[in-house]
Design a protein around this nucleic acid. Sequence first.
RNA 1: GCCGGGGUCGCCUAGCCUGGUUAGGGCGGAGGGUUGCUAACCCUCUGGCCGAAAGGCCGCGUGGGUUCAAAUCCCACCCCCGGCGCCA
Length: 454
Amino acid sequence: MWSILYYLRNDPEKLKWNMRMRGFSEAIVGKALELDTLWRKTLTELNDLRRKHNQISREIGRLKGEAREKKLAEAKSLLKLIEEKEKILRKIEAEREEVLLSIPNIVHESVPQGEDEEDNVPVKFWGKPKVWRRYLDRFKEQTKGFSVEYEVIDWKPIGHADMLEVLGLGDTFKAAQVAGSRFFYIFDDLVWLDLALLLYALDFLAQQGFKIVMPPYMLRRKPYEGVTALSDFEDAIYKIEDEDLYLIATSEHPIAALHMNEILEEKDLPLLYAGISPCFRKEAGAHGKDTKGIFRVHQFHKVEQFVFCRPEESWEWHEKLLENAEKLWQGLGVPYRVVNICTGDLGVVAAKKYDLEAWMPAQGKYREMVSCSNCTDWQSYRLKIRFRRRKTGEREYVHTLNSTAIASTRAITAILENFQEPDGTVVVPKVLRRYLELFPKAPKEVILPKKKRK
RNA sequence: GCCGGGGUCGCCUAGCCUGGUUAGGGCGGAGGGUUGCUAACCCUCUGGCCGAAAGGCCGCGUGGGUUCAAAUCCCACCCCCGGCGCCA
């Protein structure tokens, strides 16, 4: 049974607690309960009328003459009642569905309560960040409560946006003219770097037992509604004109939809997928934020982890996906922290979410690189993805989880800032070199600034 | 895009022409029986919803329509297969 409906009928207090935790009004729970009760009552009444009609209808097949005419009239009058009742039921059903689907996922007990990203709770730090002397205070503030080793530097690293200029390998101005702001051209070494990052992540995940997948880059509305909140639609998703098609914001979405309307076998779980795709995002709610460079853009590449598993295993998988992401970022050598996203910043789909945030020396801040969510049965209910219990034959909703492995442009910004030398040279992370070896023109050790190249 | 064939319970398949008892069968799965063990065999169960249960309702790609009654007839859409056209 879908967890939200289960709690609504068996423990509505839990749902009210959830609404309070998330800072929403709990009135909707009462409304849902009321509608569900009314729906069940009305359904019973309708079924009763239908039963009578079915009985008469069956008799008619056996009758002749006057008796038949009489029953025909009876059936017809019954039909009117049924139609009326159906109309009422449909209305209630639509309201009930709307209310039920608007209930956010039930947060895990370990999720901190809070209003916005300020209240996210760091749980782990890794690596030895390079901290510019004048950012020391900021750094201490962000690492409060943890003892994090760091290296003080006396020169100010150049921000990722300006690095595109220094290297001469990106043009966001021309892109803005031809496509709009938040688009970019990148060239040569940065293109190789983008590809190498993706291959690195895919290679790693394939070895971890993930099936690698290139999904459709567009989805119909129906599957899209199953994987995301309607409110996100307007802010994030591009629509194709005059077609029922939407550009994907992440491969999470087509992968979640891959098993739509299916009943999986318990023995086939978990299903592990590593998706690679471009991602298209409107970023409508982000006016003024990160307007320069390639940190927040309308289009980028991403390798994504996605898991369908049994409900009792999903919390283990949540930790495992985070661990995979951490290994990838440790491999790159980028210092990061992991934060436990608070209730106010969680979004309605996830029950719990970790972000992996890379230290950005030029900004003096940790910035999001990876987002790792357990969506429990919130997506699978909407997409009707179930599995059959081997022992009992019962059908239950699977749990779905997703986590970034590497998003190319963000990873590039982290590399440009963290592996920058005082002269503007960028050292290529060692783990990427094997993916660059293949190409004679690709960078191997370093990416040189424009003025140092011939 | 056009023409033809098709979509049935987890999978395969019958039913559709000619509307009307319970959508039948096989496979796979669960439980039980028989058995020295295994195999084989036999029996029961194996879509969703409402209901404490008895039971009832719904369900044959999706949505409409005709009819007292639709898997079955009609319309639209989606998808799959074959042919033609177009195409990186």
